[in-house]
Nucleic acid binder design. Structure first.
Lengths: 123, 123
DNA sequence: TCCCTAGTTCAATGTTTATTGAACTATCAA
DNA sequence: TTGATAGTTCAATAAACATTGAACTAGGGA
């Protein structure tokens, strides 16, 4: 278990990989939940997503989200804290993340996304 | 060969399918080229994309783009004319298509997209 | 020290995907 | 009716993908 997983640099973030990453319902739900959480604190632990799938499957999706540059993982003890790479994404693809997030919000029911009041306070 | 292929209704257009469709470099190039063409005429023939891949592979990608609601195919003689479903997409996911298109434009070189001056005049 | 918790890694599985070429359908023009 | 053109459909293939459970690693607390 290496100390900090590899992340692509801002310039290495590629549009097709980002779109592909966001096209999976579980990963979209993770990104959506991270975005909701930004209003309270910027980070969430892996365990906060346990409702979405099993541990090992989530680890697989977390890795994908890291590799494509959508989120960043910080190791602290036995926990991993993750947050959206908002600034990098905005610099590379202005308006894209917000367009996807508001599109997802419109279909929150259909996509079975966490509702606003489900956001963990003080996470 | 049925007269007019099936297209989803506006309400049937799903975000994950749209993002997945746009995540393939060939399909992104098709959509980008259709968007460029909108300034001149709204439609292009299948053959206008022959530079991107072989005929049967293109037909496969065209079907995907139709099925996810990104474009519309109209049959006229031996030709099929295709255009973006701009209004439907804007209604379902406001700002999404333009955000993807401008992101793609920023990376046009990297994505090997057709440049503006390559657009077929009066197609 | 021992165990619990948090999360990753690995191997196996079945599914979906992109790509190719060949066969096919349909329209148009000579 | 013959031939050319435009595009789809089919079958086959190899690669990528999502999912599962078991094994593993590391940190923190009793």
């Amino acid at each position: 278990m290496s100390r900090t997983p590899l992340h692509p640099t801002r310039e290495q973030i590629e549009l097709p990989m980002v779109l592909d990453c966001l096209s999976d319902p579980i990963r979209l739900a993770i990104v959506y939940q991270l975005a909701q959480q930004e209003r309270v604190s910027s980070e969430l632990r892996c365990g906060d997503f346990n409702g979405l799938s099993g541990k090992s499957n989530l680890a697989y999706h977390f890795a994908k989200l890291r590799e494509c540059g959508l989120m960043l993982t910080r190791v602290a003890g036995t926990n991993r804290f993750m947050r959206l790479r908002r600034e990098d994404l905005e610099a590379r693809f202005p308006g894209l993340l917000d367009a996807v997030l508001s599109s997802a919000a419109k279909d929150a029911d259909r996509l079975q996304l966490v509702s606003e009041c489900d956001v963990v306070e003080g996470g």
